[in-house]
Design a protein around this nucleic acid. Structure first.
Lengths: 252, 252
DNA sequence: GGCGCCCCAATTGCATGCAGTTTGGGGGCT
DNA sequence: AGCCCCCAAACTGCATGCAATTGGGGCGCC
C-alpha cells in the first residue's frame, strides 16, 4: 500500500495559523524580502487581529527559521548566511533521499497522476514570475513528502525546503527552472518504476545541482551582513571602539 | 578546523523560553508522562507568569512535537503512535549520520575530552533513575550536533532526539543503557581517528539498535489511542453513531 | 439500574492596557 | 562641520479582562 493511516493535520484554522501561512507565502515569494521589518502592530492591523496573535505567529515562524526574533527588537525576515544556506541544503538532501526511498515503488496511480499534474503546473508557470516558479518547485518536494504519510517527515521537509526557498531568493541569480522541471519528471518516473537506488541518486543530484547553481560562491556583497564581512578584519584590531566604526545604515 | 564561526543561540532568556526548557525537560524525564494535561492557568501559576506566556510556550512545544494542541481543548503531552516513533528514528538516523560525517577527523582535543567527560557522566548515572540515563544519552547526541556549529542541524537533531526520547519512555521496557554507553565510546574513538565511513556506520547501527530494542512491536495495548486501534473496525460500520460508542475514559 | 439531556464550572481564544526598552533625530556644544 | 547627549515616539514584554466553547456532573426519564 502507498498510504499508511490517517494523519491529523497539525495546522488548523487558528487565526495564528492563518497569519503564519500568509507570512510564509509572502516570504518565500519574496513579497517580503530578507531583512524586512515585521512590527507586531502593523501585522495585527493588516490581518485584523490583535498584537497578541501577530506575536504568536511570529514566534512560530521564528521556530521555523523564517523570521529572526531578538528581544525588544522588531522582528525581521531571516537573512540566512551563506553557510546556513549550505547547511540547509545538506540536511535537505538527506531528508529527501529518505522520502524517495520510502516512496519508491509504493505510489498509487492517482498519486503519480497528481505529481505529474503538479509538474505540468510548474511547466505552465515557466513564463511567469521567478518567485512563483521557485514556490511551485518547492511545493513539488513538499507534495512528495506528504505522500510518505509521515507527519514528522512532512514537517521537516517543508521547513527546510522553505528555508532553502528563502536562501534561493537571496543568493540565486535569475535562474532557469527548466532543467529542474525535467529532473522532477525523471524522479517521478523512477519512483513509478520502483528503482530505489536510482531515485535516491536522482534526488541527491537534483538538489545538489539546484544548490550549486544557486549558491554560486560566498558572494560577499549581496545578502551577507556587513558586520559579518568585516569580522575577520576586525580580529586584527585591538581597540574596543572598532565595533562602533561601521556606523553605516544596515539595509534599510 | 573544527569550529566554524560564531553562532547565535536561538533560545534566549525569555520567560517563554525558560518555561519551554522546563517543560521539555519534565517531559523527557517523564515527570510529565504522555497524555498529561497542561492547562494554561496551571502552568502560568506554577511558573509565576500569565496565561499569555504559558500559552506561547505551549505553542512552541507543539511546534516541536512534544505537546498536542487541539482547539478549545486542554493541551496534553504528545503521545506519539508507534509508527511516528519509527518515523522519528528513521529521520534521526539520517540526520545523525550527517552529523558524524561532518565531524569525522575534525574534532579538537578539547572537544574529544568534552565528549569523553559526558560519557563518563552517563556511566556515573548508571545506577540512578532510568529517565536520567535516557536524558543523558540523548544529550550526548545533541552535544555532538552542537559541535558541527550548524544551528539548523542542532535544532533538528535536538528536536527529533527529544521526540525519540519521549517515545522511548512510552514504549521501552526498563532497559539497560550499558551497551549504548559503549557504543558512544566507540563513536568518539572513530570520530577521533577520522574514519568517516566507519563512524557513520557506527552511528547508524547504534541508533537502529536503540530503536529496535525499544520499539519492540506495535504493542497495541500500551500507548496507542483506543480510537486508533478501533479505526479499522469502524471502517466497516456505516452508522454515524459509531464514533460515539467507545465512551470509555481515555487515559486518565 | 441505565441512558440521555441540560446546565454550569473550567478552560481556551483573543483584545486591550500598561510598563519598560530601543531608536533615531534635533539641539547644543566643541 | 562634526560629535554627543537627551528625549520623545515607536515598539516590545507581559498581565489582565471578557466572550465563547467544552465536558462532566446531576437530574429526570425510561
Amino acid at each position: 500500500m502507498a498510504a499508511r493511516s490517517t494523519s491529523k493535520t497539525s495546522e488548523s484554522s487558528d487565526k495564528v495559523s492563518v497569519i503564519c501561512r500568509a507570512l510564509r507565502r509572502a516570504i518565500i515569494e519574496q513579497a517580503l524580502e530578507p531583512g524586512a521589518k515585521l512590527p507586531e502592530d502593523a501585522l495585527g492591523e493588516r490581518f485584523g487581529v490583535s498584537r497578541t496573535i501577530a506575536r504568536h505567529a511570529l514566534g512560530q515562524l521564528a521556530a521555523e527559521g523564517l523570521v529572526e526574533l531578538r528581544r525588544n527588537r522588531i522582528a525581521v525576515v531571516a537573512t540566512p548566511s551563506w553557510q546556513e544556506a549550505r547547511d540547509a541544503f545538506d540536511i535537505r538532501i538527506e531528508l529527501e533521499r529518505l522520502v524517495v526511498r520510502q516512496l519508491a515503488g509504493k505510489l498509487t496511480k492517482a498519486q503519480i497522476a497528481e505529481l505529474n499534474a503538479h509538474v505540468d503546473a510548474e511547466d505552465g508557470a515557466r513564463g511567469g514570475a521567478d518567485a512563483v516558479s521557485i514556490r511551485l518547485a518547492t511545493e513539488f518536494h513538499i507534495l512528495l513528502a506528504q505522500m510518505t504519510n509521515s507527519p514528522i517527515l512532512v514537517r521537516y521537509v517543508s521547513e527546510v525546503a522553505y528555508r532553502c526557498c528563502l536562501t534561493l531568493s537571496l543568493y540565486s541569480r535569475p535562474h532557469s527552472t527548466e532543467c529542474a522541471i525535467n529532473e522532477h519528471r525523471a524522479i517521478i518516473s523512477a519512483l513509478a518504476k520502483g528503482d530505489e537506488a536510482k531515485v535516491m541518486d536522482l534526488m541527491h543530484h537534483h538538489l545538489d545541482s539546484v544548490a550549486n547553481r544557486a549558491l554560486v560562491a560566498p558572494t560577499p556583497q549581496r545578502g551577507r551582513d556587513l558586520l559579518d564581512i568585516l569580522a575577520p578584519y576586525a580580529d586584527e584590531v585591538t581597540s574596543d571602539r572598532v565595533v562602533k566604526l561601521p556606523k553605516v545604515a544596515r539595509r534599510g
